[in-house]
Design a protein around this nucleic acid. Sequence first.
DNA 1: CGCATCATTGAACAAAATCAAGCGAGGTGG
DNA 2: CCACCTCGCTTGATTTTGTTCAATGATGCG
Lengths: 245, 245
Amino acid sequence: MAGPSPHDRLIRKLESISTLTSEEAAALRGLPMTLKRLDDDADIVCIGDRPSHCCLLVDGFLFRYITLPTGARQITSLHVPGDMPDLQSLHLEVMDHSLGALAPSTVAFIPHAAVHDLVKRYTGIASALWRDTLVDAAIFREWIANVGQRSAYQRAAHLMCEFVYKMRAVGLANEDGCPFPLTQQEMGNSMGLSVVHVNRTLQALRADGLIVLKAKHLKIPDWEAFKKVAGFDPTYLHLSRRAAA
Amino acid sequence: MAGPSPHDRLIRKLESISTLTSEEAAALRGLPMTLKRLDDDADIVCIGDRPSHCCLLVDGFLFRYITLPTGARQITSLHVPGDMPDLQSLHLEVMDHSLGALAPSTVAFIPHAAVHDLVKRYTGIASALWRDTLVDAAIFREWIANVGQRSAYQRAAHLMCEFVYKMRAVGLANEDGCPFPLTQQEMGNSMGLSVVHVNRTLQALRADGLIVLKAKHLKIPDWEAFKKVAGFDPTYLHLSRRAAA
DNA sequence: CGCATCATTGAACAAAATCAAGCGAGGTGG
DNA sequence: CCACCTCGCTTGATTTTGTTCAATGATGCG
């Protein structure tokens, strides 16, 4: 399945959190993009790099992570198609974290210069991109609260809630759930938990009938009950009315 | 002590992470500001609000926090003079968290319209402000790692390292340390730890000669040793060379 | 002085980490 | 085609870290 074009993905994503004029959408369609396929586990940019391109995720899943001096790894965000996970590199020259692929993925590289140019010419695009980085930050805040305050059980539920919401916002989830690409190890690295404990937590969620997670596919039978358990309120995702519906 | 003007604070802060032309600095000096004094514990904006102004911290200390459905509170950031902690409200209409005062403080309110106007007219200011929100996000990422991966002992050390660095960057710390306004309860809410455990952790840090913390003043006798314990690398603060020195 | 807030202490308890094996499905090479 | 190997998942036992509960000091301020 060929799926939407890279430009369509980007536009759909930006429309999930902003509004674009047709002129702005057309301008975005003019962005030069170089496609690249990535293996599972491949790194796109690493801490210390000074990227000259931004990366748009077209297909698959990416994640950002920090490696501590001890070797411990903390995942700080998960990304779905349409996301530009290193948009920040437009204004932050040196990477303070790394960006890698969670699953085999396709990404499109866009030269910084081309983005800077669009931003200068279209205030609407500038706003949308700035806003995108701000939503990113809002999600980071929620993750701090997730790791800092919630029990393992709630934490896992919250992580999954957010993931499904993000997938729905770009049209990649339906009533039957959506792909969920994380291994238990990766979930642990996202939530500040050991693999063993993640395993036990998932079993508890399954036993309580809250999730059906198998073969990297996640289904939530009772969405309202699940949100309640997670303490999930989607406000922080700042979705436009259309995308939130 | 009257101290620097609100505009000076802002300019100094922006210069700690960017460079401004003299024309841009002059334009910033033209920003309309309304000063307000705040008590300890006062809230400036709350979750759900739709602010029409940004807030510049002139004097004192602010913090952002999320309140979970259970009533638990997670502090997501600490702010020192020169910071604009709700700059994000320029592009995110509704607040997904709250902003309050850690200590008696003075803040300056700036109408969104005035900021939007400056951003439109000076790309350098637009870049500096966008960059400021991106540094904010980088700090959130580091906090996720702090809460998710580090022991209580390291966590506390890291929190203090970051705070002192931010104070130094705007000229508010010297070799004798700096003010440190957090109660142990607030430190706990910042690090995902109970008050009791914060207390014991601080005692351990004191016993090891790493900190001298008394009457809300913090001094680090051996900075290199302390950074090592904390696993602290200031890259993520993205300070300009001048401010990092 | 008396109240309020913050800091400190001890004891019992709970959550999650660690250590150490096994299990199972998918992929590979002989 | 099958043995085998790897990676991710699962399980149990044990230990560690941090929480909770319940008081008791200390400090500052009106």
